[in-house]
């Protein structure tokens, strides 16, 4: 039974990975950009995955419990702004700033989770609402929240180990850890149970509300990590960092492309990261081909639909 659950999910990931690689390699060869296959080129490609990857890993948790989180973009902006303000260029403030940011993300996750799990509010509306509230407060307060992160902190985003950026290692390390949580722990089993069959989970004695709450907290914390990474990358966070990156909708898109069901209960981290890899390869390939920004948007729209349709079409039930 368990193997049956994992295998189709794994195959979605493998197929996506393969397609993405083919797209990237073919474009690089066709445009004569052989330098893309150097270590620098490959790590550059992987680096494009980090921010969206972190958000999407978190988003996978909420979607697995049949919820959704539209507030991640605001959380990203919020942590990035808070981190740059609190550090103000001082390396001694790195630890307090990181703690403050994670605390902030945790708080947003708790609020989202509470509204969805215990307030009975549709997750789309609840997280849209908290996102709007945060976005407004951030924009209004931004004039007071200037500053930039400490140079040492930027090392997180620009430094590397044996030529591989720290941030890429962190993404895959965290991805592995979270895949372990989902597939090998009680929490993971409960997440799948709550998403797949909430009534059954309740009857089995699982306190579904708390599982949903936990998923939201994990999601917000990952958005917070993405915000911290971006703060290190861009030096000074702005209130529209997350919104301009469309991290909310893109994280949902890659999660679903990766085979996680919006209705919950089925999916996983490997597929999501493969979806993120698809987006990164497309990004890099569009650049090599010199496709203009508007056409890129058109292509991306169709690719999202097709990528989801390819495995959704096999489903027998109805979707809405």
């Amino acid at each position: 039974m368990k193997m049956g659950k994992i295998r189709p999910q794994f195959s979605v990931a493998a197929v996506l990975l393969l397609i993405s690689l083919v797209i990237f390699v073919v474009t690089a060869v066709a445009t004569g950009e052989m330098a893309q296959f150097s270590l620098q080129g490959i790590t550059g490609l992987l680096q494009r995955m980090v921010a969206l990857g972190l958000v999407a890993v978190g988003q996978t948790f909420v979607i697995l419990v049949a919820s959704i989180d539209l507030s991640v973009a605001a959380v990203i902006s919020g942590t990035a702004v808070l981190a740059s303000w609190m550090m103000g260029g001082d390396p001694a403030m790195i630890v307090p700033a990181v703690l403050l940011c994670l605390g902030f993300a945790l708080a947003v996750g708790l609020v989202n989770g509470a509204l969805v799990a215990f307030g009975g509010i549709n997750p789309l509306i609840a997280t849209l609402g908290t996102g709007l509230i945060l976005q407004g407060v951030l924009s209004a307060g931004y004039g007071l929240l200037g500053g930039s992160v400490a140079p040492a902190f930027q090392h997180l985003a620009y430094g590397s180990l044996f030529g591989i950026p720290w941030s890429v290692l962190a993404l895959f390390g965290l991805g592995l850890a979270m895949a372990f949580v989902l597939n090998r722990t009680v929490l993971g089993a409960r997440i799948f149970a709550v998403g797949g069959n909430p009534e059954g989970a309740r009857l089995a004695g699982i306190r579904t509300g708390w599982v949903i709450l936990t998923a939201h907290v994990i999601c917000s914390l990952f958005a917070g990590l993405a915000g911290l990474y971006l703060a290190a990358r861009v030096q000074a966070g702005t209130p529209w960092l997350g919104r301009d990156g469309i991290y909310d909708l893109e994280s949902i898109a890659v999660t679903v492309i990766g085979g996680t069901l919006l209705a919950g209960g089925k999916g996983g981290i490997a597929g999501t990261l493969a979806g993120v890899f698809l987006f990164a390869s497309l990004d890099a390939s569009f650049n090599m081909l010199g496709i203009d920004a508007f056409l890129k948007q058109v292509l991306r729209g169709f690719i999202i639909i097709v990528a989801v349709a390819v495995h959704a079409i096999r489903g027998r039930g109805h979707v809405a």
């Binding site: 949902i252 058109v298 729209g301 999202i304 639909i305 989801v308 959704a312 979707v319």
Partner: peptide
């Protein structure tokens, strides 16, 4: 195609 409407119309929004 059984694509959830939120994804299908997001795609349409983009293209």
């Amino acid at each position: 195609l059984k694509v959830p409407s939120i994804i299908a119309t997001l795609g349409t929004m983009l293209w």
